[in-house]
């Protein structure tokens, strides 16, 4: 008689896996960078008068690096969440402005200097942040996307949590939601701050 219970047993096993799977996001891709030191860089920031910025400047602090761009539609969805979160002053949020829109050289001959391109991108980003709110303590300008390659940027927006020793502790590909902040990021930040 027992053999007639086999299908039911197999099915129940399947249901358990499906139930666990429901709470997982198949798009959440583990990053080989988690647990490794944040790759160093030195980039201009949004503020033309400020010095160049690199992760080493944040030593001793738990901080968040958020990859964004004015051309990124999903960032608009995420942005109000970050703005509200920044007001709570839980940790400094640094922006990484990824491949911001720049004027293109024209085939006919008009070429833009790197300074002109940077200024264009700065103006564009500043205008966007003025309109949507600025959650960032500063925003580094990764114009050619080289830093993005070092960080393995998979899609914009992306968010990293980096600890006091400059080690990446968390990576999120895609939009940060209030639930994610509450359930994962905040507890992690508190733990890192305590250590």
């Amino acid at each position: 008689m027992k053999k007639f219970l086999i299908p039911l047993g197999l099915f129940l096993g399947l249901v358990i896996f499906l139930a666990v799977g429901l709470n997982r996001d198949p798009r959440e891709i583990p990053s080989p960078l988690v647990g490794k030191p944040a790759p160093a860089f030195s980039l201009n920031t949004l503020d033309a008068n400020a010095p160049k910025f690199g992760p080493q400047d944040m030593k001793g602090k738990v901080w968040m690096l958020n990859v964004w761009a004015t051309w990124c539609v999903a960032c608009r969805e995420e942005h109000p969440v970050l703005v509200a979160f920044s007001k709570a002053n839980q940790l400094p949020i640094v922006g990484l402005s990824y491949k911001e829109v720049q004027p293109q050289d024209e085939p006919s001959g008009k070429k833009f200097t790197p300074e002109e391109k940077l200024q264009f991108a700065r103006d564009r980003s500043a205008l966007w942040l003025k309109r949507h709110g600025n959650p960032y303590v500063l925003s580094a300008m990764d114009l050619d996307g080289r830093v993005g390659i070092d960080y393995g940027v998979y899609g914009v927006p992306e968010t990293y949590v980096i600890d006091k020793d400059g080690v990446i502790r968390y990576k999120r590909v895609g939009v940060v939601t209030p639930e994610l902040l509450q359930s994962t990021i905040l507890p992690l930040v508190q733990k890192l701050n305590a250590s």
């Binding site: 896996f17 499906l18 997982r24 198949p26 959440e28 583990p30």
Partner: peptide, 11 residues
């Protein structure tokens, strides 16, 4: 992929 993920064996 779902089973492996559920068992925390990676993606």
């Amino acid at each position: 992929p779902l089973i492996v993920d559920a068992l925390n064996l990676g993606k």
